[in-house]
Amino acid sequence: MSPSRAFAPALVLLLLAALIPVFVTANTVLNFIVFTLIIALAAQGWNLLGGLCGQFSFGHAAFFGSGAYAAALLQARYGVNAWAAFTAAIAFAALVGWIIGYLSFRSGLRGSYFALVTLAFAEVFRILANASAFTGGAAGTLIKLDIRPENFQFASRAAFVWIALALVGFTLLLTTAITRSRLGAWFAAVRENEDAARALGVDTLAVKLKAITLSAGITGAAGALYVQYYLYLDANIAYGSWISIEALIAPIIGGIGTPLGPIVGAVTLHGLGELTKLFAGGIPGIDLVIYGALLVAAIAFAPDGMMGLLQRLGRGKVTPNTTASTTTDAKTTGARTEGAA
């Protein structure tokens, strides 16, 4: 695939999305778009580590929350400029990612052990942030309302749509570029078979640390954007398992390991969630029921997510994957090859 063909669909999609606020001004719609983009960004971070490099995390809240708290506390406690705080928050989340990665990958944790350790880190952070006076404890932290662009606060929600889009777009291009690079080949090699990767000269520890650092930085940016938009944060928002789950379900629904997967997944999930809220009204927890149903459907009928399904539809192979062998077939001919082919 030529470079222009690899990047073109993403760019077209972004430009179309950027036009939405020009035509739609309803706050509820813009609200929905910003929130969905924040989830998409967090999920893009997860996808880089879990999808590309094969290290499944159950605790991306650790990075989302670290980014969010860094952005909030630097402003609220130290009066740091919001844009500077935002940048520092990304760096801080990336550092947290590197440290968690170093501790767990150094000791050889893989698969479900790694997943559980990330979950444990997120939970410990949540408990600490909930108890500590520095983070505002259970009462949470507020960023002072002072609507000025230099404060990263805007009167119009459209500005946030564009900023969120820019971040999601940048990450989309970054992910696409990685899948077409040596680092991407190394991510895939580590994901598929670590021993074989080492035999070919791949420093698997260094590669995994790169993946988790980038991943944490991206998900941390989502957290920082979240707090900048809502101007309020507490431990259950920042480090709650809700965001760990959002960050991993979106790529699984959308297409794990594909650059567009997390975005497609987040839009599908939250689009359907909003629609059911519209029609099923106030039934509590109905959106969770939808999530569960979608997840089951995705695993049964589209193990490569929406992206894999779209590719198979495009080729006229619409058979659901009922056996293990067709599943691997679809995996290899479909989503997996799309980035690096």
Binding site: A185, A188, A196, T332, R336
Partner: peptide
């Protein structure tokens, strides 16, 4: 120990990347 999810050429390219960092050369 193949990289089962990758194509033949991608498998071999992982080896080639060791001495050729650029994608086209690898």
């Amino acid at each position: 120990q193949p990289f089962a999810g990758l194509s033949v050429v991608e498998n071999i390219a992982v080896g080639a990347y060791l001495r050729h960092p650029a994608r086209a050369e690898a």
